[in-house]
């Protein structure tokens, strides 16, 4: 029996119903899921399986219709909008498939954004953003706008943005969906590094088995229910894959 403290995320009978007026769609049908601190979990499923809904709930962008969600031992399923915003700001970093960077805003300013809302003053904010950018290997690109960066670079900026407030959890929604295979592996490498070196709990949502194999645990979804929950036996490591495989050459990718 695991103690509550071990579970950084604990979902109990989570149900989510979308009321579209005429029809009620049950996207999640009583999900129970525990994720321990420092785990690297891949949530898998086809589109419409409910995995994105689950991600929205875990990331505190949305509230469950029914059920309880304990985040670091605290029930967050009934929090108000501003409290959820604070959770997103400090406890959970989110990375999206389409990067979701602010256009016409420099990489550095994009990274600064969460620190802006956590109230960090100008100078330490800038320094911290620069340092976080350095960690994803983009310190020389700080003044570039997203449209001047490659997809991989944009996703790195997004990761830096998710990490600036040093949240214990990083959530990624199809983080490699818009990237070529080599860049995808590089991004997954960053996740693995963050997971291993900083002990950050990482949850990625994907529909690709190849991507899921970089995680330590796979949770499979279908029709709003968990259909499988298993430890990855032949886990892939990004640094090894990058060393051994010959990817097509592509400009702009920076090796980790």
């Amino acid at each position: 029996m695991r103690s509550v403290q071990d579970n950084i995320i604990q979902l109990k009978k989570i149900t989510k119903v979308y009321d579209t007026g005429a029809v009620q769609v049950e996207a999640l049908r009583g999900i129970n899921l525990d994720i321990k601190k420092g785990e690297f979990v891949a949530i898998m499923g086809a589109s419409g399986s409910g995995k994105s809904t689950l991600l929205n709930i875990i990331s505190c962008m949305d509230r469950p219709t029914k059920g309880e969600y304990f985040l670091m031992g605290k029930d967050v399923s009934k929090l108000g909008g501003d409290q959820l915003a604070s959770v997103r700001n400090k406890t959970i970093g989110i990375v999206f498939q389409n990067f979701n960077l602010l256009s016409r805003t420099t990489a550095l300013e994009n990274v600064e954004l969460p620190a802006l809302y956590s109230g960090l003053s100008s100078k330490p904010r800038r320094e911290k953003a620069m340092q976080t950018l350095k960690e994803v290997g983009l310190e020389d690109w700080w003044h570039h706008h997203p449209n001047q960066l490659s997809g991989g670079q944009q996703q790195r900026v997004a990761i830096a943005r998710a990490m600036i407030n040093q949240p214990p959890i990083l959530l990624a929604d199809e983080p490699t969906g818009n990237l070529d295979s080599k860049t995808s592996v590089e991004i997954l490498g960053i996740f693995q590094k963050l997971n291993k070196e900083k002990g950050i709990t990482i949850i990625i949502v994907t529909h690709e088995t190849d991507i899921a194999r970089y995680a330590a645990r796979i949770v499979g979804f279908r029709d709003g229910l968990i259909i499988k929950d298993e430890i990855v036996s032949n886990r892939l490591w990004a640094d090894k894959v990058l060393k051994n495989n010959h990817f097509r050459k592509k400009k702009g990718g920076v090796a980790v």
Binding site: A85, S86, N89, I94, F96, N100, Y117
Partner: peptide
């Protein structure tokens, strides 16, 4: 979308 991004990274309604 900009508003969405800002909210996703922790902007409160009053921000």
């Amino acid at each position: 979308r900009e508003i969405g991004i800002r909210m996703a990274v922790g902007a409160r309604s009053r921000d």
